[in-house]
Structure formats: C-alpha cells, structure tokens
Design a protein around this nucleic acid. Structure first.
Lengths: 129, 129
DNA sequence: CCGGATCCGTATAGATACTG
DNA sequence: CAGTATCTATACGGATCCGG
C-alpha cells in the first residue's frame, strides 16, 4: 500500500466492507451482478414485462434461470411481481423504486461497455496475437 | 411493449445489443461482473497491488479464482501485469486507463449498494416474514 | 397455452495441495 | 511468492411435468 493512496481521495474511504466475506453487500452484489440479474434489471428499466417477454428479450436465458433470478431480485426488494389469477396465467414484473435506482447504475455500466466496445476489442487484439 | 417506451428517453436507445447472445459486450460484461472481477477492479482502484495483496484484501477468494480473474481482465485490456524477474517472484497488477474507467462504473454500483444497504435489508425483511 | 417446479446430465466455479 | 494440477461442489441448461 505504499504508493497506493496518494491519489484516489474518496474512493478508498468507506470501502473495505464489501471485501469481507461476511458483509451483506456481497450477497446483494452477487445477485445484482449475476449473469442474468444484470440483464433482467436493464430489461426492466424499459418498463413492465411479462415472464415470456423477458425470456424472449434476454437472449439465451433458460426458463429455470430466469425464474430463479427474478425470485432473487424480488426477495432483495428490487422487483415487484404481480400475478393475475387468470387462465392462462399472466404475471407482470417491474422495478421497485429501489430497483430503478440500482438499475440505473447497472445501466451506466453496460452503457459504458457498449460505448467503448471498439476500444476494448482493440486492446484485446494486442494481446491475442 | 405497450406502456413501456412512454418515458425512458435515451435508455431504450442503443440498447438491444447486449441482450443478444452473440454480442461481444456480453462476454466483457460477464468478465467484469463476475463474482471476483467486480472486487478485483474495485480493489485496484486504490492503486497497484501484488498478487498476495489482492488475495488478502479480497476476502474469500481462492488462488485459482484470483489468477483466473486477473488473466481474464488482463486479456480484456483492463489490467496491466508486470512481472519482475526476481526470486522470490514479484508481480504487480494495476488498472489500465480503460480499466480505471470501467472500475469507476463498478465502484459507483458498489457504492450505491453500500449506501442503500439499510433500505435494502428493510425491503428484504418485509418478504422474509 | 403460460408460468413455473422438478429432475438429471454436464460445464464451470471453487478449495486444496503441489511446483518453480 | 505467484501460479498450476487435481479433485469436488454447485450453477446452469434442457427436458418434462403440472396447475390453472
């Protein structure tokens, strides 16, 4: 840690909690940054979706994983689930206020990646050789 | 899709690429949001670290996972690896400019989670019963 | 028909022990 | 100290079943 803290004023501040195994942040973080969690949150940023809508929208997700991911995020309070007792079943998923906030963060991350994809690909190729 | 796009101006814009399986963004996203990738990036935001420093700092990470994660992020051009040919070995990891940028995004996400942890925990409990 | 729950086979994450 | 080899656990996807 010698030359580490010279710059980076506020970043190194409160941080240090996520790094410990016990911290509850870690679990939330794992749910939110899970393979499908990220995409579900971003998808729902565009508004309410039905189960099948999400399944179609998020390429490659299996029914099992989508259901599981939605349940996780619902338990964490990021997603609202409304099941209409009709036949055939009709279930709508949407973001809670909390979910919208964290969705914005995830959205920013993905936005950055997509915007900088050319640069990233170029950086990759240098090493691939 | 009906009442979805009424608000959300720029968000629904360029998005749609990440949702497809083939998109290279997906792979980058998976590396960056992987369980340990997130923590490695944030850890390196505080400056250069040696392998063992990272291992100590990031609670619960195994040697194999740390090595693997570092290699991924190095290949993606987010991390610089400098190995000094001495004995015992001395290897330093740091963020590239690109890595610093994406690290800032990840940092913001984690920051939000830590800041809102009380609210999240409260929202969770409502459902846990 | 839709939204899951369940079971099972496989791929990847992960811990541990070992090597240069 | 930094990283690989080997082995085990779990995450994941696919198919199937089910209740409305």
């Amino acid at each position: 840690m010698p030359q580490a803290n010279t710059r980076m004023s506020k970043i190194a501040q409160r941080r240090g909690e996520v790094f410990s195994t016990a911290c509850p942040s870690r679990e939330i973080l794992n749910h939110v940054t899970s393979r499908w969690g990220v995409l579900v949150l971003v998808a729902l940023m565009e508004g309410t979706h039905r189960f099948s809508d999400l399944r179609r929208k998020i390429g490659g997700v299996s029914e099992k994983m989508l259901a599981q991911t939605l349940q996780q995020l619902e338990k964490d309070g990021f997603i609202d689930r409304i099941a209409y007792p009709v036949v055939p079943p009709h279930v709508e998923y949407s973001l809670t206020p909390l979910g919208t906030e964290i969705g914005a963060q995830v959205d920013a991350l993905i936005d950055w990646i997509e915007s900088n994809l050319p640069k990233i690909m170029k950086a990759q190729q240098k090493r691939a050789a």
